[in-house]
Simulated scan of single mutants.
Amino acid sequence: MSQSEADIAYANADFIPDAAAYPPRWEERAREWREVEHAVGRAQLNMPYGEGARQRFDLFYPAGRPEGLMVFVHGGYWRRFDNKLWSHFAAGAQAAGWAVAMPSYTLAPEARIAEITQEVRRAVEAAAARVAGPIVLTGHSAGGHLVARMLCPDVGLDPAVAARLKRVVPISPLADLVPLMETAMNADLRIDAAEAEAESPIRHSPLPCPVTVWVGAEERPAFLDQARWLTEAWEGAELRIDPGRHHFDVIDGLADDASPLMKAVLGG
């Protein structure tokens, strides 16, 4: 695959109607959610899990005692966005009685993917220290990659935290990084053969934990392939293809506690 072919294969916005409207809409809804939740005392914002400027997470609580903790890790090809665009997607888990942690992380090219993986590990451990009970991990796109990596033994997730994992749901994950080496964005990512081997979840045997790989039926073929590759590589993993969903609206179900996606994440 040539660089131009790889760029087209992994381009999402070019194939989604009105794609440019999604980020500002996410940002506005997220801001409104944070303001309301903070005003009623259900949000702790900008809590540090490290010394870096972006090593912060927001924690949203349900109305009563949390059933457990959901961690959502955002996407953006490890190069864009932060946790402030997604706050409203905590709504589904909160309504179901769960606390929700949403971390930011240092972006490429300032950080390599291997470094981002370790930041997310620390964020998960820091959030777990604040909320008792079972833990579920979910993330979208690059965030799907990062939550899948938490199940890889080489990451070194605290054994006490790993023992609390109930379910991991990578949404539209990047499971094999080799194809991304041929894209123009690799100028920022700097994935080489060694990092592609080490950081691709499909090249690891995961810790024991139920895994559901979720992907939209209308996504780019490359993302459908990536979802299948992870499901095939990880024995026991389930593949769910969400009808009618593309790469940007595939996460909408996180805002609704009755959605199939939310039930998959929480194991309902």
Score class of each variant (00 low, 15 high):
A196F: 02
R203L: 15
E195N: 06
P201A: 08
V215F: 02
K166V: 03
D154C: 13
V161D: 01
R203C: 02
E199F: 01
P208I: 09
R149Q: 08
W214L: 06
V211D: 13
V211I: 14
A148G: 15
R167D: 10
C209W: 08
L151V: 05
S205H: 11
A175E: 05
A142G: 14
L174Q: 12
E182D: 15
A162N: 05
A163Y: 10
V169D: 10
A217F: 05
E199K: 02
M181N: 02
A217C: 07
S141A: 05
A187H: 14
A142H: 01
D158I: 03
G144P: 07
R167G: 09
P159W: 00
S200Q: 02
D154T: 13
G156P: 04
A187Q: 15
L146R: 05
R190D: 11
V213G: 02
P206C: 07
A198H: 09
G144D: 06
P201D: 04
A217G: 07
C209T: 12
S205V: 15
A193R: 12
T212W: 03
A142L: 05
P170F: 08
P170N: 10
E195P: 00
L207R: 09
H145Q: 13
D176T: 03
R203F: 15
L146A: 04
P159K: 05
K166D: 12
